[in-house]
Design a protein around this nucleic acid. Sequence first.
DNA 1: TCATAAGAAGACAAAAAGGTCTTTTTAATT
DNA 2: AATTAAAAAGACCTTTTTGTCTTCTTATGA
Lengths: 138, 138
Amino acid sequence: MFNKETEYAMRSLVYIQVENYKGRRPGISEIAAEIDAPRFFTAKILQRMVRQGFVQSRKGRGGGFYFDSKHAPLKIGDVIKAVEGDNIMTGCAFGLKYCDETNPCPLHFRYAPIREKINTLVAEETIQSLARRPAGTD
Amino acid sequence: MFNKETEYAMRSLVYIQVENYKGRRPGISEIAAEIDAPRFFTAKILQRMVRQGFVQSRKGRGGGFYFDSKHAPLKIGDVIKAVEGDNIMTGCAFGLKYCDETNPCPLHFRYAPIREKINTLVAEETIQSLARRPAGTD
DNA sequence: TCATAAGAAGACAAAAAGGTCTTTTTAATT
DNA sequence: AATTAAAAAGACCTTTTTGTCTTCTTATGA
């Protein structure tokens, strides 16, 4: 469904929030190990998340990643859009550039309701709502 | 949703079936032009489709592509699976290797019903059912 | 204040996806 | 039989995705 970068981004951010709820600020090595992702690749992705203001970080000894209340809650749709674009939210399943109710591809009337459900999901769920859900990481 | 190869495969096959219904057997150049796909890449994809027995072809002058009744109808799910694998039908949205009702990722209970709808769609729709639907190609 | 632990930055590289082109084979038509 | 039109095969190339590594910067704590 999503590309690797998006998956790693979502898993990292949820892990960070889970640990924040426990009063901890995890670092890159811990995050990458826990979510089963390549360390340096995860670092790069999180750096972009920080630059976009989606999550905060602190350099130096005792540093790590954390959310501040100014930016949370963070919709997963915003993360997805920032990382891989909005094709999953708006694209045609048949790959047509122009496809809508008035000029539909042969899959349109079956696929559009599914795409709508995806849109609802990514608009409603947040890194915080996911972090509150008890769940495994592998 | 799907990768380029899958999109081109679906669009090609639907176009071939549409033309077959009119009593024609389109060739590669025509197909690629009509579905707005790169010619040689489409040729390669269709060759694989022929090798898998999903569609038939005839070489030489007056040749082209066609479906015979022995193999039709062809489920789009079979095409998708053959071209890009079944990740879209079975994969976890969070990217976890093991994710199910007893060991769910935080998105599982929201995403699983959507994945089910995708499964139903690709199991019910066929190249033939799509070819019978009046629709544009761009 | 100096050593150390952490993230930031960015160059580099491998693998996968996407795409192009030439040559070969096949069949129909003249 | 020769010509021509078509698909088959496969080498090759480009771009994007995914991943690695080294160096720089920053902050903490002894």
